[in-house]
Write a protein that binds this DNA or RNA. Structure first.
Length: 292
DNA sequence: CATGAGCGT
């Protein structure tokens, strides 16, 4: 035909019937019988012989019993899969398993209660929150944007509180002018916070010492950020301290919270003394000034 | 049960 530019080798099943050459579809379907309990498998096929007659071919094979016993049907089937992925370049049977080269990043909460973390918290004071990993330290966005916090992010309350620690006490003391020569501390890194307190003036410190509240009967894994979270609702907190056993690194079960305003400290004492916290009843009282 | 660390600018 003039229309048909396709080479005759290109097979179209619709044409097969026409040229009458390949009539295999007329034959009975291939049958697989077994394997039976003896491991004998029979494959029955049909084809046309050269003379056009139908020929029945029966192939009988014996399946190894061992293989049959150990491999499930699907396992046998998997053996016939073409190799894919990195295994494409592997020789047949050279390796049974492949090590994935894909990089998988895991989000890892801080390991709870390690000594390194304890000292770090003591130094950073408020850089971290969470009692022994009880608080899941997962933040959806802080990694990139810095100020979008999930409701459970321990840093969400600490970021503004850093300002309270560094800036607010001097601000609150505008009635008593600070030393004129000393420049106003704008931002002091947490690691330098203790030093910043000293440079801001010892009178400020003494003032805060007078609003010092002692908290006892703390659970062992209560940390300074926990105390801050608990007490800051009463007013500006100027300092939080949890006594740590320097030798073991564990909390000694008491601490101090200093308020900028005495009234706030008073309210905290009235509200939180006897307050159940971490299965323990807190004792919250005025602290006796530290001898120095 | 229980009263803090360091002493530096």
């Amino acid at each position: 035909m003039a229309f048909n530019a396709k080479p005759p080798s290109k097979l179209r099943w619709g044409e097969l019937e026409d040229d009458g050459e390949d009539l295999d579809f007329l034959l009975p379907p291939r049958q697989v019988i077994g394997p039976d309990e003896n491991g004998v498998k029979r494959v029955v096929e049909y084809k046309f012989g050269d003379d056009g007659n139908k020929i029945k071919i029966t192939t009988t094979t014996r399946v190894r019993k061992l293989a049959k016993a150990r491999l499930s049907k699907s396992a046998v089937e998997r053996r016939n899969w073409a190799k894919f992925g990195d295994a494409v370049h592997e020789d047949v049977g050279s390796r049974l398993t492949m090590v994935s080269t894909e990089e998988i990043l895991l989000e890892r909460p801080r390991a709870p209660g390690t000594k390194a973390d304890e000292s770090k918290i003591a130094g950073d004071n408020l850089a971290q929150l969470g009692k022994g990993g009880a608080v899941l330290m997962v933040c959806r966005t802080c990694g990139k944007k810095g100020d979008h916090w999930t409701s459970r992010c321990p840093y969400k309350d600490l970021a503004p509180q850093t300002d309270a620690f560094v800036d607010k006490p001097p601000m609150a003391e505008t009635a008593v002018p600070g030393p004129g020569g000393a420049s106003k501390p704008a931002y002091v890194p947490p690691s330098m916070r203790a030093g910043a307190d000293r440079t801001a003036g010892t009178d400020m410190r003494r003032r805060n010492e007078e609003n010092s509240v002692r908290v006892t009967n703390l659970s062992e894994d209560t940390r300074e950020p926990d105390l801050l979270e608990l007490f800051r609702t009463f007013g500006s907190v100027s300092r939080v301290y949890v006594a740590i056993d320097q030798k073991t690194g564990v909390s000694r079960g008491f601490g101090f919270v200093n308020f900028v305003n005495k009234e706030d400290a008073e309210r905290a004492i009235n509200k939180l003394n006897g307050y159940g916290y971490d299965n323990l009843i807190l004792r919250v009282e005025w602290a006796t000034p530290r001898p120095n």
